[in-house]
Design a protein around this nucleic acid. Structure first.
Length: 439
RNA sequence: GCCUAGGUGGUGUAACGGCAGCAUAAGAGAUUGUGGCUCUCUUGACGGGGGUUCGAUUCCCCCCCUGGGCCCCA
């Protein structure tokens, strides 16, 4: 027997899970196109040199990296942003702003846990060449629109700014060399609480007189401009801090105007990944039952493209974690319309009547209906049972007696009512009952 | 990579150092033209490898996988 397991951390998507993913991908595509983003795809594999451009030893540890048969060092992409940066850098004449979306798989050599897979799908929008925080606000609005159509409730997007965090360390008197250690600790607030952060800060060598300022800052947060006023107050003596707050203010004004402020929280404890972001950062959370970690993340990365081509290029973007959202949607129970079954099942009662069945099926399919023809030559009872299990609204029975009369039997599976319909009038029959078919 | 709890048919579970049982799903039939009930039958499991033992699914060790935590989350 062949070993039939999947590779660690990777999964097959069947039935409802795949229906959920198709739904999410189609919704994401629709939303992205609505906002004027252009589709883009790129190889799942990149040269190792490209993937490592972001720097950091951790990248290597968490990448599927190997040597191909031509002795090239390659790896599976760990996000959709690095490939984008490569493409933008190698196409310097793209008209700006370049707004593109990409939906595809990425791979990370992580330890698998609930909601954390080694192969997962991301849906990404990015804006290249726009330095204004309005661009940052836009990608957040794209994500909000997607969430309102899919999860509908119980979600929030947290926002902060790397410049605000930098300012915070200045105000608190933390050395630059410890700044990243510091961010890493306070980012864990949700997970380990204030006391935990305090311990973390101490163990990472943050001076005691600095920790009080940092801890107080963790309380700052909320929706709308009021929270930002507190940010500004705290960072009054930091130029970079004030700059960061100013950017958030621009974003906040957009959210106020659009009327989505209650879905946004500005939080000083949000840091996200290191090295990579230069300005606003975002993270989305689902507040309901299955805890799956962040469901989206993103931010501004104004220096990444420069690393490839030397040309300073502002950029911002956001990534939706499709696999985690699949898990949420499955747990919530799939909406009926996603699991909607067949419009019509066709039950030939003799094998030699299958061709008649196919003929009728094709006619209905051309009308846009979903139709399946029974292929196993089972008894009528079994065929009806199967039709029911596939959610068929109607079953068309084709047996010798029907053919004698040049007709078929159309059974309404809900009403359990069967009537004779001429074999050439089937399409017309369903056109007239079209309003009954709730598509 | 580290710590920790687990792993029995597709799914959910039971038992035991000595025949691995139940439920459900799936397939066939009772019923070769009108389903969902019922009845009968069938298929299908001890994650893998080593050790202790007359005998291991059970006890021990290693590995793999899953969940939780840590590290990390580009």
């Amino acid at each position: 027997m062949v070993d039939m397991r999947t590779v660690r951390g990777m999964r097959d998507l069947m039935g409802d899970e795949m229906r959920a993913r198709n739904f999410l991908v189609s919704q994401a595509t629709r939303v992205f196109e609505s906002f004027g983003y252009e589709p883009l795809d790129s190889p799942v594999m990149e040269l190792w040199e490209t993937l490592s451009a972001k720097g950091g030893e951790d990248v290597e540890a968490e990448t599927f990296k190997f040597t191909d048969k031509g002795a090239r060092e390659v790896g599976l992409r760990f996000d959709l942003t690095v490939p984008l940066a490569r493409i933008v850098a190698s196409n310097p004449h793209l008209r700006k702003p370049f707004k593109r979306y990409a939906i595809g798989k990425a791979w990370r050599y992580d330890r698998p846990q609930a909601g954390r897979y080694r192969e997962f799908m991301q849906a990404d929008v990015d804006i290249i060449g726009a330095a204004s925080p309005v661009a940052d606000a836009e990608v957040v609005l794209v994500a909000l629109e997607f969430l309102s159509r899919t999860l509908k409730e119980k979600y929030i997007i947290k926002i902060n700014n790397r410049k605000v965090l930098k300012g915070l360390t200045e105000v608190a008197g933390v050395e630059d060399s410890l700044a990243h250690e510091c961010f890493r600790s306070i980012d864990k607030l949700d997970k380990i609480g204030k006391d935990g952060v305090l311990e973390e800060l101490a163990s990472r060598g943050i001076p005691k007189d600095a920790t009080q300022t940092l801890l107080d800052a963790l309380d700052i947060g909320g929706s709308g401009n009021n929270a930002l006023e507190e940010f500004a107050e705290l960072l009054a003596n930091s130029e970079v801090g004030k700059e960061g707050v100013g950017e958030l203010k621009v974003m906040s004004d957009v959210f106020e105007e659009v009327g989505v402020s209650d879905l946004i929280r500005f939080e000083m404890s949000l840091a996200r990944g290191l090295d990579y972001y230069t300005g606003p950062v975002f993270e989305g959370r689902f507040l309901g039952k299955p805890k799956v970690g962040s469901i989206l993340g993103g931010g501004r990365y104004d220096h990444l493209i420069e690393k490839f081509c030397g040309t300073p290029t502002p950029a911002t973007g956001i990534s939706l974690g499709i696999d985690r959202i699949i898990d949420i949607i499955i747990a919530k129970g799939l909406p009926d319309k996603l699991s909607k079954g067949l419009d019509v099942f066709i039950a030939p009662l003799r094998k030699n009547l299958a061709s008649k069945g196919m003929k009728v099926a094709i006619q209905l399919i051309k009308e846009g209906m979903s139709v399946e023809v029974g292929l196993l030559g089972r008894s009528l009872g079994k065929l009806l049972e199967y039709a029911e299990s596939k959610g068929a609204r109607y079953t068309i029975i084709i047996g010798p007696k029907d053919i004698e009369k040049n007709s078929v039997s159309v059974r309404d599976m809900k009403e359990k009512d069967t009537r004779q319909v001429g074999i050439d009038e089937v399409v017309g029959f369903f056109k007239n009952t079209e309003d009954k078919l709730e598509w």
